[in-house]
Simulated assay, not measured.
Amino acid sequence: MITVRLAEDRGRADFGWLDSRHTFSFGSYYDPEHMGFSALRVINDDKVAPGAGFDTHGHKDMEIISLVTEGEIEHKDSMGNVQRLPAGEFQLMSAGKGVFHSEYNASKEKPLRFLQIWIVPEQTGGKPGYQQKDFGRAPGLTPIVTPDGANGTLQVKQQASLFQLLLPPEGHHDMRLNPARRYYVHMVTGQLRAGEHTLQAGDGAAIEQHDSLSFVQQGGEQAMALIFELP
């Protein structure tokens, strides 16, 4: 079964300095039919005005993944990390028993756009952690996040994995799935056909009880999707 969530059906919060689209219920947006999918709790598509950002705030018992698609994040946290996250790099912050951080648009002239993703951890508490890495732009499927951090991936405290799928014009990828697991696809850029469904930027698809799925690039620009494997 594949259930598509169109970009235009997402929730929205517009504060002037921040324009955010919510795939799942978040903040003032509440929809009991969209509270997350398996351990995947949040996918927010955030646009931040130049020089603006999120003041220091706290998180607890959450695995928080960020991917900048335009601009650069200036990050500071209570673990002592002072980092910049440019477009294309992945960041994973394990909140554990508690962490404070701030995120700002590093530019005073250009907008920032990034995906903020939350995954519920398998166990609560524990020591907070920070990871950041650029996995490149190789066509095809690239593992980004895994439960064991194998082969240089970022390690998440959940039986979940995240893959980056990049397909050039006329490209395709056949992915083997475990029918006992659940999968979620989030389109970042471009257009793909996933099985019988066409997905465009911002669309999502929840996938259950499939042993394989074919992805075919549609359109003239490179397509990028994030694929989550979930318990």
Rank of each mutant, 00 (worst) to 15 (best):
residue 103 E to H: 08
residue 124 T to M: 14
residue 84 R to M: 09
residue 84 R to N: 13
residue 127 K to S: 09
residue 74 E to W: 11
residue 85 L to G: 00
residue 112 L to V: 08
residue 136 G to V: 06
residue 98 G to V: 01
residue 62 M to C: 05
residue 97 K to F: 05
residue 62 M to R: 13
residue 125 G to M: 09
residue 142 T to L: 08
residue 122 E to C: 02
residue 138 A to L: 08
residue 109 E to S: 12
residue 81 N to H: 15
residue 113 R to T: 06
residue 79 M to V: 10
residue 66 S to W: 04
residue 61 D to V: 11
residue 70 E to K: 15
residue 119 I to M: 12
residue 136 G to H: 12
residue 95 A to G: 06
residue 109 E to A: 14
residue 117 I to N: 01
residue 74 E to M: 09
residue 63 E to D: 02
residue 93 M to D: 04
residue 94 S to R: 11
residue 70 E to A: 06
residue 132 Q to S: 12
residue 133 K to V: 07
residue 62 M to E: 03
residue 64 I to D: 04
residue 69 T to Q: 08
residue 68 V to T: 14
residue 70 E to W: 02
residue 101 H to M: 06
residue 71 G to H: 10
residue 137 R to K: 14
residue 135 F to P: 09
residue 66 S to D: 02
residue 133 K to D: 02
residue 132 Q to C: 05
residue 72 E to I: 00
residue 130 Y to H: 13
residue 105 N to I: 08
residue 83 Q to I: 00
residue 138 A to Y: 00
residue 122 E to T: 10
residue 89 E to V: 07
residue 79 M to Q: 12
residue 85 L to E: 04
residue 90 F to V: 08
residue 81 N to W: 01
residue 63 E to C: 03
residue 101 H to K: 11
residue 99 V to L: 01
residue 67 L to P: 07
residue 89 E to R: 07
residue 129 G to P: 01
residue 112 L to A: 06
residue 128 P to A: 09
residue 90 F to S: 05
residue 84 R to P: 00
residue 102 S to F: 13
residue 99 V to I: 15
residue 83 Q to R: 15
residue 89 E to W: 04
residue 84 R to F: 07
residue 69 T to N: 00
residue 136 G to P: 08
residue 97 K to C: 04
residue 66 S to F: 05
residue 128 P to R: 05
residue 107 S to M: 10
residue 69 T to D: 00
residue 63 E to Q: 14
residue 133 K to A: 13
residue 111 P to G: 03
residue 134 D to R: 12
residue 84 R to L: 14
residue 134 D to T: 10
residue 85 L to F: 03
residue 123 Q to N: 12
residue 61 D to Q: 10
residue 141 L to Y: 10
residue 128 P to F: 04
residue 95 A to P: 03
residue 134 D to C: 05
residue 103 E to C: 02
residue 65 I to V: 15
residue 104 Y to H: 14
residue 137 R to A: 12
residue 137 R to D: 11
residue 113 R to H: 14
residue 79 M to H: 11
residue 101 H to C: 03
residue 139 P to D: 14
residue 113 R to C: 01
residue 64 I to W: 10
residue 82 V to P: 02
residue 74 E to Q: 13
residue 96 G to L: 04
residue 119 I to K: 03
residue 69 T to I: 15
residue 132 Q to P: 00
residue 88 G to Y: 11
residue 95 A to F: 10
residue 96 G to Y: 00
residue 116 Q to W: 07
residue 86 P to R: 11
residue 120 V to I: 15
residue 134 D to P: 09
residue 83 Q to C: 01
residue 112 L to N: 06
residue 70 E to F: 03
residue 99 V to N: 01
residue 88 G to Q: 06
residue 93 M to G: 03
residue 122 E to V: 07
residue 89 E to S: 15
residue 63 E to R: 12
residue 134 D to V: 03
residue 99 V to W: 08
residue 131 Q to R: 01
residue 62 M to P: 03
residue 105 N to P: 06
residue 84 R to Y: 12
residue 71 G to W: 13
residue 65 I to P: 02
residue 106 A to R: 12
residue 111 P to V: 14
residue 92 L to G: 05
residue 106 A to S: 15
residue 75 H to I: 01
residue 122 E to K: 15
residue 131 Q to Y: 11
residue 75 H to E: 02
residue 111 P to A: 06
residue 64 I to L: 13
residue 86 P to L: 05
residue 108 K to W: 02
residue 61 D to E: 04
residue 114 F to K: 04
residue 66 S to P: 00
residue 130 Y to D: 10
